[in-house]
Design a protein around this nucleic acid. Sequence first.
DNA 1: CCACCCATGTAACTAGTTACATGATTTC
DNA 2: GAAATCATGTAACTAGTTACATGGGTGG
Lengths: 188, 188
Amino acid sequence: MSLPHALMVSLVERPCSGYDLARRFEKTIGYFWRASHQQIYRELGRMEAAGWIYSTADDQSNTGRRTYQVQSAGLNELKRWASQTDDPVMLRDPFFVRLRADAMIGPLGLQDELRHRIAHHQLKLDTYAIIEQHDFLNRPQTRAIQIQHQILKAGILYERNMLAWSQQMLDLLNQLDQTHTPSHPSER
Amino acid sequence: MSLPHALMVSLVERPCSGYDLARRFEKTIGYFWRASHQQIYRELGRMEAAGWIYSTADDQSNTGRRTYQVQSAGLNELKRWASQTDDPVMLRDPFFVRLRADAMIGPLGLQDELRHRIAHHQLKLDTYAIIEQHDFLNRPQTRAIQIQHQILKAGILYERNMLAWSQQMLDLLNQLDQTHTPSHPSER
DNA sequence: CCACCCATGTAACTAGTTACATGATTTC
DNA sequence: GAAATCATGTAACTAGTTACATGGGTGG
């Protein structure tokens, strides 16, 4: 499992509450891992039970807010886990299944979804460009910053890739539809 | 959920047994979706109960082998599902978490894993090149074939991308380690 | 005082993985 | 006759999602 370890990495960077973690995982950290607040609270509970982290009720203001920090047992676990090897994950997008369905029993008019996806990838690229500008360019090039920058670049490459591919796919579908639809009104 | 629909697409292409589906999902179809035989049998059972598919014991040879085919209810469900819209999936690779851990509490010596990943991506690219040669080049350019080819290209682009990025990451780590590791953290 | 954000959780479900199990057929 | 492969499943667990719930603090 990766989520507890992703949370610990985040807590090593800066100790904070579950709520803050949830927000950080929705924003900047979200380009490389994502989690809902329900999952986060569950994992925080488990990790505290395992002695990997501990929490203090940082409360002058009687909310239930707790701040979590990584303990040495957690650090050891993180090192152990980070040193093991796994196969890279595959690209696994339901949209490919839709397209394959369109190829077999189509045309299903997937152009709209493609346009939606193109906009989505463009938006992510814009966000990443802002993060890159803000966090990585014109910053001291420490070891940590260079590695984190390279991780962000993976996200940028991925989005750029999917954007270009989606445009190609849209062109192809438009071209196929164009030659199919007008001459024979049988379909649609 | 996508798996039942992925299975139906596969069964539309060619009716077959659960065992055959499992093999097809490990091989060629595996570049866009993957499933274990346990999952496949479970889904086949559910889909048959739902009336989306039906099976016949194709048995002159008393094995329990059953061949599955998609029924019209299944085709309708497939059309309905394929026409809905979702957000594209994100890149979500535990290795990014490992790298982030290395950035915070490193160096952890992730070069070996990177070399492993580079070999893996190269292997997939080789496989895809064979599939492309065999299934898509010098073939009649029907609508279905062109779409399926474009799906394969997404896989090729993805692997090419990850390969190039992994090599950059490996170079970066080598460069950082080289200046960091020896007795003095400052340089050498 | 109402809406919105802060902050925490529980419960139930779905999807995917791992481990285990069984028997028949083909190949050496 | 042993080993590999064909062919099917069950059981238990893990990870992730969706829906629901609660209560305090802040700004207009």
